[in-house]
Design a protein around this nucleic acid. Structure first.
Lengths: 174, 174
DNA sequence: CCCTTTTCACCTAGGTGGTAAGAT
DNA sequence: ATCTTACCACCTAGGTGAAAAGGG
């Protein structure tokens, strides 16, 4: 499913006429399971072997010019997360996570010069950024009612679950 | 509205690691009005001053590598045509045509080198291709019932107008 | 018992030709 | 008379959380 709220970045300092690819990956913050208990997330159990296959999500505008990336916010509204390892076929479409683990998204900006092979993977010329405020714990079912409500309130596709959806129209008819 | 059937091209002979922009424009074939009379398109009246603003439609994957463009067919399924000159604000979104005139679509493949200004308009390094079999006459209302039927039969968004749409389900219930 | 998967009604978003009304 | 515009019911396409069903 899509990540929501989604990541969105402002870029500056690029060469307007150079070409860059922009991508996001998601890395484990720690090796623990987490569980939601008594209204809080708590660590649980011990480390397992690190999972493979945390793949990159290449921004669909890639590759593109510095001017393009700096013109407006670079948003990742279509980035999708899954726990299905079989989904690794859809390379670049899906990021595979392990449920109930804590993750840190990272932004990569890579200059692509002609003849340097395929775009995408962090090369020598990559800048990487990680914002701790974007960390999250992956779930298959929502645990925290505040998060559920935040999604219902702000995701347009969840409008059917908003309490006041009917009354908006009722009121306008008076 | 979207052009349908849409243009689709196979490209070869590009440098896989060079960058290219791919776009389509649409140019007048002649300066005459056309009208549909007695089951045929016939010229009508004389030339007017040539209209301005036949803009380019940049393929949404642009700019991208030669390898990307050659990997599969390059399709223009989202290219939109309009007769609304005010729509020229949406640069690169819309191609402005004059109704009842005959047009020739053209494909442009432009190598974009770092530092050569904005991508898009045919530069010195552009190859241009025009296929006469893709010529068409722009209309605001369909004149030729064969064309209407072709669209209904093949455009998935017109399924509601297919004669046998109901019977497909009726049959499957027997 | 706790977590995951599947299915569902309900949305957003937007592309069809038909048709009636408008414009010249 | 002829062409254009605006609106419509009907589609495609796919993103929501809830809830029921499945699994270890």
């Amino acid at each position: 499913r899509r990540m929501f709220p989604f990541l969105s970045f402002n870029l500056s300092g690029l060469n307007p006429v150079a070409h860059y690819s922009v991508c996001v990956d998601v890395v484990l913050v720690d090796q623990h399971h987490w569980r939601y208990q008594g209204g809080k997330w708590v660590q649980c159990g011990k480390a397992e072997g690190s999972m493979p296959g945390n793949r990159l999500y290449l921004h669909p505008d890639s590759p593109n010019t510095g001017a393009h990336w700096m013109r407006q916010e670079v948003s990742f509204g279509k980035l999708k997360l899954t726990n299905n390892k079989g989904a690794s076929n859809n390379v670049g479409q899906m990021i595979v996570l392990q449920s109930l683990h804590k993750y840190q998204p990272r932004l990569h900006v890579t200059e692509v010069k002609e003849g340097e092979g395929e775009e995408g993977y962090p090369s020598p010329h990559t800048h990487t950024f990680a914002f701790p405020e974007t960390q999250f714990i992956a779930v298959t079912a929502y645990q925290n009612a505040d998060i559920t409500q935040l999604k219902i309130d702000h995701n347009p596709f969840a409008k059917g679950f908003r309490d006041n959806f009917d009354s908006m129209y009722t009121a306008s008819e008076s």
